[in-house]
Write a protein that binds this DNA or RNA. Structure first.
Lengths: 295, 295
DNA sequence: GGAAACGTGGAATATATGTTCCATTCTATC
DNA sequence: GATAGAATGGAACATATATTCCACGTTTCC
């Protein structure tokens, strides 16, 4: 039953072995391989039944997987991962990591020091998310969702730094079955794309300082056409905020002058899923169930 | 059977409770208490039988110990310590906390319950960021930055869910003065946009499961043309990963079947700024100083 | 298009683990 | 030093877990 001459004896070897033989595995075995690579901790700590449920396979399949790698069963493989886990844990104590982290943050004034840029950004985005959770009220969200739900056609726009957020919104709203037009400005056709905006429609405009002129003009045009406008922006006094029917303020924190988009995207996804739930609750027509869906 | 009114609910509380009540314990119970305090990892990870043998007591004594602290058995106490261990080792804590999080969600799993969707997503994104900070090594990042820096022309692509990430990368790299072509696939011109790829160029391909065919083909084409490929993806065995010169794995956590992009965007920005710093340090030609710049 | 080989899900089984129980030992008190 | 009470060890038990096995489905190759 031993597939190869050498059976992996460390967590790293196991990883390498899986990668090497991935192609020779069957579909289900590949699925398990992915799970093991992506969530080694789960396999190490949880029982087989839990791992099976979480990875969406049968316990027996996991045993087969372990045997395909040359083990006598799933348990030896688990032990391997567990040991690796413990080794990592003891090698780098918690306190030490915190110290390193804080030290890195302390000299963030240092010019070219990019030694732990990632840690800084992680920290910054975490703060931004925290702030979002504290400042954004349920009422504001509910109102935004209601506006979106009531719109016959949803227009989404956002340029430059706001473009990723806008594209995410457009893509996701389409995915959950909302009629959405992404005003991407390709070919300078912004006004044409917005041409059919009417009173029953909603424009979601995403914009941060410095506010793109194109977006402002589009908002003006939409208001003139009688459409409602929902803006996602960084300031309640931004040019858009006054014209908009509703404003969602997102305060992205800043490190070294660079702003992020983590909070905006988190908010964006919340809007999308909230809408999906709302429609499901009301039993809207032809909307696929949002739960368990891979977005 | 509950010794005291409040049962410890975290690893720290447990530690405190043991210390506080140490004197009231019998000799054998004190022996176990010492072992738990000194080797919490062992109790967390090993089976009761192993712990019993290692600490020189009977399994039943450990159960008694747990009951003396108010638990229904030894298992709940083990779970507690396990969670505590994971909390310290955030890279591992990730999976466990997601599990807890999901378990909590399951209770309120009523379909249309969006009462605090935002809080859920904030929590999930926070976890994903934390995990990113712990699992992404400096070496991996440094190598990616080096690849980008050495590329004469940088191509960036990513479709569907990866599109926001790709657009962000393209926009930001252009902002910091890197020659970048955003392969956005407008008008079905993907292959034309990629037409000029050469050996001195780099393609950054962002892709998540299920991987867009267009992206895979583009990666193949780039490799065939002799260009290097850097992929940002969710699995080391994703179709792209094999062809790529370097892979950056991003594990976005998932709530109710919906994945986010927070970690990916955080990574993206880290790459951009790291490149900017790198160039500044070397004193590259005509690159605007990255600091204090609004990206 | 048919047949063989392979892969898969789920129930059945064997095993190992945590827990309980009670006879025995230890400790404290008179 | 005797005795009552508590504590302990280890066997017996119940439970949960990993593993095996087989009928069914799927793919592959002739």
């Amino acid at each position: 039953m031993t597939g190869s001459a050498t059976v992996p004896r460390t967590a790293e070897e196991l990883r390498a072995a899986i990668l090497e033989r991935y192609d020779t595995f069957s579909k289900r075995l590949q699925q398990i391989a992915r799970f093991v690579l992506d969530h080694p901790d789960d396999l190490a700590l949880e029982t087989l039944a839990v791992v099976a449920e979480r990875s969406g396979v049968q316990p027996s399949a996991i045993v087969r997987f372990a045997k395909a790698l040359g083990y006598s069963g799933a348990m030896p493989m688990q032990r391997l991962l567990r040991d690796g886990l413990l080794a990592n844990h003891t090698a780098l104590g918690y306190g030490e990591r915190v110290r390193q982290f804080n030290a890195a943050l302390d000299h963030q004034a240092g010019a070219g020091d990019d030694s732990d840029l990632l840690a800084e950004f992680v920290e910054r985005d975490t703060l931004a998310l925290e702030n979002l959770g504290q400042t954004m009220t349920k009422a504001d969200l509910a109102r935004a969702v209601k506006l979106i739900d009531q719109a016959q056609i949803l227009y989404v726009m956002g340029f430059r730094r706001a473009f990723p957020v806008a594209s995410y919104l457009a893509y996701s709203f389409q995915q959950v079955g909302k009629r959405t037009i992404f005003v991407d400005g390709v070919g300078g056709l912004t006004s044409q794309q917005m041409g059919a905006v009417g009173e029953t429609d909603l424009l979601i405009a995403v914009s941060y300082h410095p506010y793109a002129e194109e977006t402002m003009h589009a908002v003006e045009a939409a208001v003139a056409a009688g459409a409602k406008v929902l803006t996602i922006t960084d300031s309640l006094v931004s040019p858009m905020a006054k014209m908009a029917a509703h404003v969602l303020q997102v305060r992205e924190s800043e490190v070294r002058g660079f702003r992020s988009l983590a909070a905006s995207l988190c908010l964006a996804q919340t809007l999308v899923i909230s809408l999906a739930f709302e429609r499901e609750r009301v039993g809207a027509k032809g909307v696929s169930r949002p739960r368990r869906r891979k977005a």
